[in-house]
Nucleic acid binder design. Sequence first.
RNA 1: CGGGGGAUGGCUGAGUGGUCGAAAGCGGCGGUCUUGAAAACCGUUGUAGCGCAAGCUACCCAGGGUUCGAAUCCCUGUCCCCCGGCCA
Length: 415
Amino acid sequence: MIDLKQLEQSFESTATALRRRGVDETKLADLKQLFEEKKALRQKLETAQAEQNAKSRLFGEYKREGKDLSALQAEVAANKKRIAELNEALKRVEERLLNEAAAVPNLPDPDVPDGEDENDNVELKRVLEPTTFDFQPKEHWELAESNGWIDFERGVKVAKSRFSSLRGMGARLERALINYMLDFNRKRGFEEVWVPAIVNDASLYGTGQLPKFADDLFKIEGEELYLIPTAEVPLTNLYRDEILSREQLPLKMTAHTPCFRKEAGSAGRDTRGIIRQHQFDKVELVCITRPEESDRVFEEMVACASDLLTSLGLPHRHVLLCAGDMGFSAAKTIDLEVWLPGQGCYREISSVSNTRDFQARRAKIRFKDENRKNRLVHTLNGSSLAVGRTLIAIMENYQQKDGAIAVPDALKPYL
RNA sequence: CGGGGGAUGGCUGAGUGGUCGAAAGCGGCGGUCUUGAAAACCGUUGUAGCGCAAGCUACCCAGGGUUCGAAUCCCUGUCCCCCGGCCA
């Protein structure tokens, strides 16, 4: 959630920042007006309530002294009606305000480039040279098929399209990768955490998936529960409605979970292979920090994911997302894209975002600062890495002329 | 899923209609004492909104209701605990 006070007091700069994300300015003007309307209504209501409280207190006194109550009763009854009306009006305005405010994306950081989509993203750097072959490299689904690592048809039979099953070395590598990644992150100071893969709507609201993106989620029938689209949701929400002490920060966590996404808007995209599945494994990084240190921690997270790829010998590049291509909650995002020789292009394998106080405001995660004031924390999340896509990257980068696949040295102890 | 009991401030726990934002204890913070510490003693200690301030308003799980007035009474929901059933 954006800071409505900031919107009210610095409308121009806020609107300018949000225009970069395609937010309509008239909508923001409406929002500002609603906010002011709410303030005015609340003031009226509170004045009326103060009056009611003062008069109600007189009842006890009057009774003790045996005074006549009828005049007082009439006044209080009229005021009561007014309070009810004001209350009603306030509630309506607040509901509208909340609905509209909850649908506004985060402000992009000043150093985030302008742009509409992935074509305007900025490549920051490349790590490792793209793998070269003296034969025509294959795409991962061919390799998966010939090596018997992925069973596409039976996965679909058991569930539906965009589901699959890993077999033999494919499944073992998936598990090895998970363990390797968790250990790698732990050595970088991230606490290993295990979390529920089902969360409630309050959690999804807290991290920004709800109310706007309900269509992307698998909902449990008859319950206000959902399968998680990313471990970011349970990890961040571990601290929802909490006030942390300064000493606890920064919190650095890592977790492996399955992730479930409907991929509602992706019909026809990446239908071959396991690039885009309804269920996939991911090892996630989530940090909760003081505002002053979130930039530093952001860099640590990017470095952690990038070094992980390097340690697996996977060529990749860092991409700074433009304002139009960022996710709803992010103020700044760096994607890591891994080189896929079979496809001959870079594909997203990790995404690290600083949401600043956007999620913290929604989820009410605060800390006591040095003056014992409660302030919003900054929350950050990043994949480290999408495990299925890492498996793909290994298949395509480590393929041999005969179609066999070598194992990266780093993973050998895990197999 | 069936039966019973609960939900109060950082924690424990009192409070069953009228200065209750809430006793008491513990904890935290500041101080006195001490070479230092402990103990003891004194003071202080929830969150949010509005306001220059004094102050006002809201919050005792959540949402409704009764009442001039609700932490306290009524209804609904959620969560937790105990007993039983089922179960990795």
